[in-house]
Amino acid sequence: MIELARKTGLDLDFPDHSQQLVMDVFIERHRILQNKTDGGPYPPLLSYLEAMPSFYAINEEEISVNLKTDGSLFQSPSATARAFMATGNKDCLAYLQFLVETCSNNGVPPTYPTDEELVNLGLANQLQRLGLAEHFIWQIEEILTQVYKNYEKEYSPSEKSFSVTSVATQL
């Protein structure tokens, strides 16, 4: 935000005790950007494109390589928006327009598509932790049944380590 404010011509006046802290943040960010790696267990720095400073050179080829078939960049609406602003890629624009139309009631989520099963499991877990599971036993069993059926389709019998009835009886 500081960088954007300065870029638009706003003169920011920080108290003396904060000026060094602001400089340290900018120096650390610069160090991180200089030492970026695209391998290892972490996602590539490009997946945080929306947080990149405006002076960071965006490589259109690198963006194109990482675009999904739906036009998104790492299924992140904000990174996709920044990629579109930087490149004008029409696939990115189509993805963003689709999101705005699809999610107009609740706003665009941080990632899309969202994992509905994970959201439902989180809801069931929260009800259990709040001590309200006994009031929602049928809904929780329905969630677990649906997730278990999908789990059954994706994994072999030897990989399954739970059943709906064993989980439901613990409620």
Rank of each mutant, 00 (worst) to 15 (best):
S18K: 11
T37H: 05
V119A: 03
R29G: 04
N66F: 09
T37D: 04
N35F: 03
I140H: 12
K68T: 11
R129H: 10
S166R: 13
L127F: 01
L49P: 14
A83E: 01
A168N: 02
I58F: 15
S166E: 14
Y148G: 09
V147H: 06
S18Q: 15
A124Q: 02
E134H: 15
M52E: 04
H135G: 01
L171Y: 06
V100Y: 00
P113A: 07
G71R: 00
F26N: 09
V65S: 12
M1G: 15
E141R: 06
G88M: 05
A81F: 04
M1L: 13
Q97D: 09
P15T: 01
R6C: 06
E28T: 13
G40W: 01
L46Y: 02
I137P: 00
Y155P: 00
A86K: 08
L33A: 13
K149N: 09
E28M: 11
I27S: 02
D11M: 04
F14D: 01
D13A: 09
Y48N: 12
L73E: 04
P44L: 05
K36P: 01
L130C: 03
A57T: 12
K160T: 10
I137S: 07
A94T: 14
A5E: 12
R31C: 05
E50W: 08
N35A: 12
L73C: 05
S158Q: 06
N66I: 02
A51C: 13
L10N: 01
V119E: 05
N106F: 15
E3M: 09
V100E: 11
P41T: 06
V164A: 10
Q20D: 08
F26Q: 14
H17W: 10
V22F: 03
E62M: 11
V147D: 04
P15G: 02
G107W: 05
S72W: 03
M85Q: 14
D91S: 10
P41W: 15
F136E: 02
F162V: 12
R6A: 06
S76E: 05
I58V: 15
M1P: 13
L49I: 12
D16A: 11
E142W: 03
E101D: 10
Y42S: 14
Q20K: 11
D11N: 09
L49G: 14
S158M: 02
S54Y: 02
Y56T: 13
R29T: 07
E50L: 02
K149G: 00
M23V: 12
T87V: 00
V108K: 04
L171E: 03
M85L: 12
L144C: 09
L12K: 10
E50N: 13
W138Y: 08
F14V: 02
T111C: 11
L96C: 06
E134C: 09
C103S: 06
T8E: 03
L99C: 09
G122S: 08
L127Y: 01
A51S: 15
N106R: 08
R31A: 11
Q34R: 14
K7E: 14
L49M: 10
S104A: 13
S64D: 08
V167L: 15
E62H: 07
S47G: 09
I143V: 15
L67A: 03
C92V: 05
A57E: 06
L46N: 03
P44C: 09
F84A: 05
G71M: 02
E101L: 04
A51Y: 14
Q126H: 07
E142Y: 04
E134W: 03
